[in-house]
């Protein structure tokens, strides 16, 4: 279980996250929803141990997060793979760091099987630059789930993809999470309400300036429905309206925030 208590962080005197309290049970798929600049990516970096909170605590299974967290693997929107290595070498580098005792042949087999799992069987010897954006994200997901970690952190992983690729990868992530049988917790950052409704078993809505938790909704019922039925389902639509209204109120508040604009410092 991931337990966040009163987590706050400020950059250059500006509060980015304000006393976030959140509990993520094992096997949950939590979507962090919010407009850009609300601190949701910062929150993810805190979970990954890439940043340290100014106050409050984050624990994973009762252990305080301190430095890059072994239990977590991360997928970013882009730049997840190192472009100077083949896709296979990218996976093998991660696997070697996670399982130093395995032989090269074992690592290779593992890497190949995970690439196959995400539908990239033939991409082992390809460089990332030779792959499309969608294929790169598939490879990044393969690398993230290939290492033995229980928490998968995804920072707007499909933000740069075309709609068809995005839908396919959403299906992939949803299936992978369902197949893990509650063994893997996913925290997924997005600003797309429908994406959150489709993927998340829980949805946390973040408000901006300063970033804080506005709402935490349960969406576990969505997992029974395929995509086309989900967005015809009454309770899902009700949840969508509810989240939208919270989201919109926050956006309007930010637009009306006079402190956002500084006289004379602009273009």
């Amino acid at each position: 279980m991931i337990q966040c208590t009163d987590v706050s962080i400020a950059f250059q005197g500006k509060t980015v996250l304000d006393r976030i309290g959140l509990e993520i049970p094992d096997g949950a798929f939590l979507c962090l929803l919010g407009q850009s600049g609300c601190g949701k990516s910062t929150f993810l970096r805190l979970l990954a141990g890439l940043l340290k909170a100014d106050s409050g605590s984050i624990t994973i299974d009762g252990r305080e997060v301190d430095g890059p967290e072994k239990a977590c693997s991360v997928v970013f929107q882009d730049y997840s793979l190192f472009p100077w290595m083949t896709t296979g070498d990218n996976l093998m580098l991660a696997l070697k760091a996670a399982c130093p005792d395995k032989t090269r042949a074992e690592l290779r087999n593992l890497a190949e099987s995970y690439l196959e799992l995400v539908g990239l069987g033939g991409a082992f010897h390809q460089y990332p630059s030779a792959l499309s954006g969608g294929m790169r994200q598939r490879a990044a997901i393969a690398r993230a789930i290939s290492v033995p970690c229980r928490v998968l952190l995804m920072d707007e992983p499909f933000g740069a993809l075309d709609p068809v690729n995005r839908a396919m990868l959403q299906d992939l992530v949803r299936t992978l999470h369902a197949d893990s049988g509650g063994q893997r917790t996913v925290v997924f950052v997005t600003h797309d309400v429908d994406e959150a409704l489709y993927l998340g078993t829980r949805i946390a809505v973040f408000g901006s300036s300063p970033g804080r938790l506005l709402a935490l909704e349960d969406n576990s019922a969505s997992r029974r429905l395929p995509r086309e039925k989900l967005f015809a389902d009454e309770s899902t639509l009700a949840l969508q309206r509810k989240i939208m209204s919270v989201y919109r109120a926050d956006m309007e508040k930010k637009l009306n925030d006079k402190n956002l604009f500084h006289a004379g410092n602009g273009i």
């Binding site: 990954a48 890439l50 730049y79």
Partner: peptide, 25 residues
């Protein structure tokens, strides 16, 4: 910066970090 974040998430340190990530990058 995300390459470095990635390397840190993959628990790469020391010589591995230098020769697999920083130098080629």
């Amino acid at each position: 910066p995300r390459w470095i974040d990635n390397a840190r998430c993959l628990q790469l340190t020391g010589r591995k970090l230098v020769f697999k990530v920083i130098l080629p990058g």
